[in-house]
Nucleic acid binder design. Structure first.
Lengths: 80, 80
DNA sequence: ATAATATTTAGATATTTGTCTAAATATATA
DNA sequence: TATATATTTAGACAAATATCTAAATATTAT
């Protein structure tokens, strides 16, 4: 749970989550949405992944990221 | 919303929230629950207050802290 | 095979954050 | 008023974090 709050404690990562609510996206497409270098976005994706908030799947040379809605539910029910 | 996630991104502050779910407490009583100096706890309380997660009321020489359940609800419905 | 594209890893750096001690402020009590 | 208790403020410092550039890895296409 610690990892989840840590992951959510960043505007960029919260925006990534919002993007993935609409549709799955690959790392490059996500990076294009920000004025931040690709390595930095990759780092954010890693933190989201470690928190289990997203999952990734290699598709050819791309890596597609998907929101893990199950874990988001867990946060939303935190404390009940 | 930024302030709220920031406030929740700390184990001590989350434990303070849990304590205040049970009952209102003054700063000293809260500090006793942790192996952390009072000034540090005061700092945590300040962060929780800025996030509107708790409120405080001076009662004599004590300062009583109360959980703001309304704002907690906001977090829990984040993203809907 | 070589070159191009997509992504991650490594290492460096500036900023933020949690903690402490010492001092300041506020209230209660003798 | 003087002293004790409760809390916060101020300033310092170490650890964590977000960012960058350069390099490494993986896949596709020529």
């Amino acid at each position: 749970m610690n990892e989840i709050f840590k992951a959510l404690n960043d505007e960029t990562r919260r925006r990534i989550i919002e993007l993935l609510k609409d549709k799955d996206m690959n790392a490059g497409a996500i990076a294009e949405e920000f004025n931040i270098s690709k390595p930095s976005i990759s780092h954010h994706l890693d933190i989201l992944k470690r928190a289990d908030l997203i999952t990734s799947e290699k598709k050819g040379q791309f890596v597609e990221y998907t929101l893990n809605t199950t874990i988001l539910e867990e946060v939303l029910t935190y404390g009940y």
